[in-house]
């Protein structure tokens, strides 16, 4: 299995606060990988560094063997990275269809665009809401819409920042199924997530961040059994 994303000696501080501390990280193509850790561990900042919203103080980020450390965000996206934000990053005043069209029109036009939009509507279960303004969808539907916007043109890597935040258990389960299907289509997934049951549902590997550094990495079983992870994040049975 080849590395789709590799991060080497990544450092980033804001004043006295270090959000990334000598991070070395490799993401294997085709996997579903979760980032977990306590609040303030630097998970979202790590995403923002990968996306180019923050410039690192030092270190490199490579995507498909190309150094993207100094690339602007939109250039990274065009190379095959896609993202779903924690707070649904949709265009609330536009209809569901318009949201999807804006997301895909970069690559598609006319009949091809319409077909792709229809397929994504089916996938996200939003066919009945196609002309609804995105801002009035339920929270779960907004999350799915954003996932649809992120995957319609089939990126190689999908970054998900807390994809199930605010979802009901049923919506969370459906989202897990959705991610499995996307992964089955060949999309590598890297997700920040707090819900350990969801992490167990989707992740093939898990990385634990703590104070901006990688604290542990392994399979879900290895992470759950890791005493240090229990100490800093998961808690123990006695607590």
């Amino acid at each position: 299995m080849s590395e789709i994303l590799s991060v080497s000696k990544l450092n980033k501080s804001f004043g006295g606060v270090t959000v990334a501390r000598d991070i070395d990280f490799a993401l294997q193509a085709g996997t579903m990988h979760c980032l977990i850790g306590p609040n303030g561990a630097g998970k979202s900042s790590f995403f923002r560094l990968i996306l180019g919203e923050h410039a690192p103080d030092s270190g490199t980020i490579s995507f498909r063997e190309t150094d993207i450390t100094r690339m602007r965000s939109f250039e990274r996206i065009r190379r095959g990275i896609s993202v779903k934000f924690q707070v649904p990053g949709i265009f609330k005043a536009l209809s569901v269809r318009q949201n999807l069209e804006v997301a895909f029109q970069h690559h598609l036009h006319g009949h091809n665009l319409a077909t792709t939009v229809r397929r994504v509507l089916e996938f996200t279960n939003l066919e009945s809401e196609v002309e609804t303004a995105a801002g009035v969808l339920s929270h779960g539907q907004q999350q799915w819409l954003e996932i649809g916007m992120a995957v319609g043109v089939e990126p190689q890597l999908l970054l998900l920042d807390e994809p199930t935040a605010g979802m009901s258990p049923d919506e969370t389960r459906k989202t897990g199924e959705m991610l499995h299907e996307l992964n089955g289509r060949g999309i590598t997934i890297l997700a920040v997530e707090h819900d350990m049951a969801f992490v167990e549902q989707i992740a093939t590997r898990v990385t634990v961040l703590h104070f901006g550094a990688i604290f542990a990495e392994g399979t879900i079983a290895e992470i759950i059994d890791h005493p240090g992870v229990q100490e800093i994040y998961l808690g123990t049975a006695d607590e």
Partner: peptide, 8 residues
Amino acid sequence: VSGSFLDD
């Protein structure tokens, strides 16, 4: 959904 989303 079988196949690709992308209709190219």
